[in-house]
Nucleic acid binder design. Sequence first.
DNA 1: TCGATACTTCGATAATAATGGAAATATGGA
DNA 2: TCCATATTTCCATTATTATCGAAGTATCGA
Lengths: 116, 116
Amino acid sequence: MVKKSTESERVARFADMLAAMGTEPRLRIMRLLLSAHPEGMVVGEIQTELEIPPSTLSHHLDRLKGDGLVEVRRESTFLRYTANTGALQELLGFLYAECCTRNKAVPPETIVRIGK
Amino acid sequence: MVKKSTESERVARFADMLAAMGTEPRLRIMRLLLSAHPEGMVVGEIQTELEIPPSTLSHHLDRLKGDGLVEVRRESTFLRYTANTGALQELLGFLYAECCTRNKAVPPETIVRIGK
DNA sequence: TCGATACTTCGATAATAATGGAAATATGGA
DNA sequence: TCCATATTTCCATTATTATCGAAGTATCGA
């Protein structure tokens, strides 16, 4: 059975996701994984690219994983991380709804650049 | 003259904006201000609605202001806060570009529900 | 000039988070 | 079994953030 969450839990969850990306190193990691999507990258590659010490990087990846923004799978001795597009879609959908749909505070075409 | 920011500064700025909204009380504040847009709300109204102690609320508002997510103006003894839709537009545009445009990791129609 | 109201700033504390070296664990191959 | 490589976990430190009562400041009307 699917867990039905209260509005409060929903907001709290999105807040957690925002916080997870709300740090320069982690936002960089997400951008990097998105740029490598859908293959993703193994930790060593991320490390080489971003020059973050191994243990620090591991903590950041763990945080992103904890909030559902990335997924991991092992490939022999490597761990391959990928962006969780489903989670990103939910988050973007939430923000879009809050800003553009529910309250019409931000005009959609300024985000999406419709047409052209 | 317009300040040209490096890519690094740009990412850092969006990270700060994400972090500003990455807390349940502050995300609630943003939702509330968006729901009251474009009039916004005075601090006392926000306080009544969210039941956050005055000094705590003031700190949160200050943080949101510092990262450009809200704007304030005085109305006699009241301070009226409004969501800064320009900043939200930038942030949404950035996330949308990263997820949907640059990397095509998330299909736009799942966010925007084009047509229909 | 004196309230009264609205809100912020001060000041202090407690709670979380970020960072990274060193030791531990996992996997596969010799 | 032993080694090499990849990555995490342990552990400790520093830094940042969240919270809120109490005192301070701003504005207005009497």
